[in-house]
């Protein structure tokens, strides 16, 4: 397993050293959070009803932002080719890259989400559900992002195509994510049906996305 974690560690070190991938995602997240009330109006009660959905959409866009940097640098400097010659199958390489992307951008945002939700006057009862839902959901987001990055690696204007490819795949994560956050009927029961379905989506993409991503990378190689 050290091979797997050596790749995850290297990718994390690279995102932190080169202009902070996580910092960029957080900056983008904050910027979108500022624009929403300015556009929709400062009425707190209205914003409160809006908050879970707005936070989830902002998370989706923030994760999407750094997607094309998952495979592109390795493709450009020839590392990707050598990775196919390593002892570890390409599927696990894709999984390692998704995990690194998740730990770098998705997870920090998910943990900060309640704090940032304060800006949208998020109901404090929702702090627990939204953090749990976002932690689970952001894993699925990173896995699907990795798939999109693998499909568009090496293509000109790959960044544009990625959003068209992956956003439709993000729809179920968004629906069940917001539903899981809003599943609060009085007492926030954390493990309602939506949360379980959200977890199911994450686990399914944990298995399927790397396989598809590896196939896509192989298609690019030959």
């Amino acid at each position: 397993m050290t091979v797997f974690w050596s790749l995850v560690r290297r990718d994390l070190v690279l995102t932190l050293r080169q202009g902070g991938g996580a910092g960029m995602a957080l900056g983008f997240f904050l910027t979108v959070l500022v624009l929403l009330p300015l556009g929709i109006g400062p009425d707190l009660n209205f914003l409160q009803r809006l908050a879970p959905g707005a936070l989830w959409i902002t998370l989706l866009l923030s994760v999407l932002l750094s997607t094309d940097r998952i495979f592109a640098p390795d493709y450009e400097d020839g590392s990707l080719e050598l990775m196919t010659m390593g002892p570890m199958p390409l599927e696990l390489v894709a999984l390692a890259k998704s995990v690194a992307h998740w730990l770098g951008t998705g997870l920090p945002l998910a943990i900060l989400a309640p704090g940032l939700g304060v800006l949208l006057n998020l109901d404090t009862l929702l702090f627990g559900p939204i953090m749990l839902a976002m932690v689970l959901g952001s894993l699925a987001l990173s896995l699907l992002a990795c798939l999109g990055a693998a499909v568009t690696v090496g293509l000109r204007r790959g960044g544009m195509i990625i959003s068209l490819l992956i956003l439709p795949l993000y729809v179920p994560v968004l629906i069940f994510g917001v539903a899981a956050t809003n599943s609060v009927t009085g007492v926030p029961e954390l493990f309602g049906p939506s949360m379980l379905i959200l977890t199911a989506i994450s686990l399914a993409s944990l298995v399927l996305a790397p396989i598809a991503a590896a196939a896509a990378v192989r298609a690019h190689m030959t």
Binding site: R10, V13, L14, R17, Q18, P73, D77, G78, S79, E81, L82
Partner: peptide, 11 residues
């Protein structure tokens, strides 16, 4: 070993 060096400049 191809024409590219597979090196990460930040590392």
């Amino acid at each position: 070993l191809g024409h590219q060096n597979a090196l990460k400049l930040a590392l």
